[in-house]
Design a protein around this nucleic acid. Sequence first.
DNA 1: CTGAAAGCGCTTACAG
DNA 2: CTGAAAGCGCTTACAG
Lengths: 351, 351
Amino acid sequence: MPSAPRGPASSRRPTMAEVAAKAGVSRTLVSFILDGKPGASEETRQRVLAIAKEVGYRPDAAARLLALGRSRTLGVLTDVRQLFQAELVTGIYPAAEQLGYEVLLTTNLSDRPESVPIDALISHRCGSLILLAPTSGHDYLIKLAAEVPVVVVGPRLPAEVLGAGVDLASVRTDDARGIGDAVDYLVTLGHKDILHVDGGDGSGSPERRRGYREAMSAHGLEERIDIIAGDHTEEAGAAAARELLARPGLPTAVLASNDRSALGLLDVLTRSGVDIPGELSLVGFDDTRLSDFPRIDLTTVHQDAPGLAQHAVRLAVELLERRCSGPKEVVLRSQLVIRGTSGPPPATVRR
Amino acid sequence: MPSAPRGPASSRRPTMAEVAAKAGVSRTLVSFILDGKPGASEETRQRVLAIAKEVGYRPDAAARLLALGRSRTLGVLTDVRQLFQAELVTGIYPAAEQLGYEVLLTTNLSDRPESVPIDALISHRCGSLILLAPTSGHDYLIKLAAEVPVVVVGPRLPAEVLGAGVDLASVRTDDARGIGDAVDYLVTLGHKDILHVDGGDGSGSPERRRGYREAMSAHGLEERIDIIAGDHTEEAGAAAARELLARPGLPTAVLASNDRSALGLLDVLTRSGVDIPGELSLVGFDDTRLSDFPRIDLTTVHQDAPGLAQHAVRLAVELLERRCSGPKEVVLRSQLVIRGTSGPPPATVRR
DNA sequence: CTGAAAGCGCTTACAG
DNA sequence: CTGAAAGCGCTTACAG
């Protein structure tokens, strides 16, 4: 026996061959039966199934992958610290399961490049990759997609990237329109001094910034355009709030680039005695909600997480199975959800 | 060629054999070189490494696993909706990497049994499993641990489960003592009417409930013991708050079983005009914090997430490598973190 | 320093 | 309905 001595694991873990031996049939037949293929008598089927269950047989994914050459596994890169992504992940599982695919997860960590978890996914033979709000550059994405199909969820990809001739697709929310809806709503209420705390280069942030500018201009408010630089964290929102409070006057409305930033704003402003929405209206983006708890009752732009997840899975599978017919970019509509942090501007505007 | 035609993937993905052919050496040597083993001249080493890089060679984890018989991969079951678990996951990666292990993640979903994601982990040949706050019964855990080493992070496992003779270990916080510290602190401030909103059968909840009872008794406050049933969600905290508000009088302090529950309490109580901490002190558990943002400035019992993660990984690896010498239960101390939601009881106690 | 060879556990044409 | 056989890409004694 030229190979190394095996650990107790292999003796502990029953193989297909053992099931076959116990059942007195060939390995081929066991494979067919477990795969649900025809070709075995009903009686044999039952016996083999019973034995497999009895010995606790579990298919070895590694061997299966190796034999198949390609896996029915979708690799998902997420950031476990982002609650909105948790909602996407929650939607990805059932969508994948329905198409007969498994899902493997890895997470981004702040102290290592995104390519590390992505490499792990590829090494484990994920057939295609779903990247949630990736931060890598476009060159990297194109190189990656030349190797394995990639679906990017969140940020907008320029046409030249999507059209680079590789297996790269994009699923996202119509961020610009979502912010535009929020601006329209605030303007209708009578707001004019609407400020935007942006999300830096966070997923969707450039689009949201653009949507804000365009909507303000469309309402003839271009000279009221006012942007504080931020990112998609509570801390950035809190910092923006401090900056606002240091100014001579407050805007009547603030549009945060995401809910986390809005939370930071809400926290600092509320503590400083700013009445929300009486004195200032606050609107977030994402509608992050994993429980049914209304949390802070934030007016926000709702993203269709289950829809995004479903399309991402569909595209990932189509790309993998080489039958991607439709467009490689899916843009879902958002929906403004009006809750308790927004209302008409105060009668006496401070400016 | 009896096997099925391969998809474009295999032709696209370079193998070790291709690298060997290009370099004009044997596959064995390539394997040795990529593995960092001695046995090749420096010149050959460099050439092979260069070629591997040039053709974009990536090791095939499936084949590697199959050949090795055992994987250097740790499977982690988490719940992507639980922020505290995200902190554990964040700590698990670097700890595993340091020991030369990879990490594979799956998530619990509310609509399917925990055994589904666990089976996926096993199928992908994870050498051992780290289960974050699992909800499965003890019988299941014992059965599972007979098959593959299991480390449970969070809930306390009874001695008879840990001593069942299978590869099962536990890492947790001293929940009872943590709550006890919080009770001591509140009593020192002058509180007597200290109520506990428990966490049902959430991870650590039974211990926290016990700790509350014991600490209250130790202070001679057994007749003030008052528990509202809940779970580890904001919604449960909010429900408890509503129940409290419907009572004739409020306690002077509330101990929530975790931070999410405390958030729900805080939200509803604050909205109802209850002054926190002036009128009522609120204490959470976990110290969930992924950003540096103080969020709601909650007084809480801090859990050492990096420490829990590190011990979990260490045990998982020791169990896997059959050199588990030390105890199979690690209990880490918690630390009370006093912030803005707690203070002395109001001068005029409502009762 | 290097190569031929067996084996990991599975799948799937192919031939009964 | 069933079996013998090759192959997926890797690792590792063993023999030069």
